[in-house]
Design a protein around this nucleic acid. Structure first.
Length: 158
DNA sequence: GCCAACGTTGGC
DNA sequence: GCCAACGTTGGC
């Protein structure tokens, strides 16, 4: 089972929104980045665990855990001219964008902040967190793999 | 609100 | 295929 981290802006869709969805499940639509697309289309498997990360907010950090309940399938919102993330270049016969379905697992006991993750990475330049894209300056990847070692280390911070 | 970093677009 | 211009992300 692999691990991931996925960013979301709590103003748009936060961990509480996921927890209150019917079935506590949500299709992860609207991703329009090829690296992130490739991970959802090719790599994320049912049962994989995901850190749910709040970005672009007062206290950016990991706020919960979700799991993959449906593997990559076409993001149909790309075909819809009225949708926010409509992409006229995505053809239903050859879809460009893919998504997975996520299910709520739990909130973390507290927010594990970006600040402390960065501080830890800086304190241990050869440690596992040093290689986490999240802590690198200018990182904009909205979905990233998390190694087993990184996953355990972060959960131990809870 | 600012702005650095980054990905994408499109002219050539 | 290069690269400048542009738009977006996201921390601060």
């Amino acid at each position: 089972m692999a691990h991931w981290l996925m960013k979301s802006e709590p103003d748009a869709f936060g961990i509480d929104d996921l927890a209150s969805r019917p079935g506590q499940t949500e299709p992860w639509d609207g991703v329009r980045n090829y690296q992130a697309r490739n991970m959802m289309r090719d790599e994320m498997k049912v049962g994989d665990q995901v850190f749910f990360y709040h970005s672009n907010c007062k206290e950016p950090g990991i706020v919960g855990i979700a799991q993959v309940v449906r593997e990559g399938y076409p993001d149909h919102t790309a075909f819809d001219p009225n949708a926010n993330y409509h992409d006229p270049k995505s053809d239903p016969n050859n879809p460009r964008w893919f998504m997975v379905d996520l299910k709520y697992v739990r909130h973390t006991k507290r927010t594990i902040t970006l600040a402390e993750l960065k501080a830890l990475a800086a304190d241990h330049p050869a440690g596992p967190l040093a290689h986490l894209p999240l802590v690198r300056r200018g990182n904009r990847l909205s979905i990233m793999p998390v190694t087993d070692e990184q996953w355990r280390l972060i959960l131990d911070l809870e």
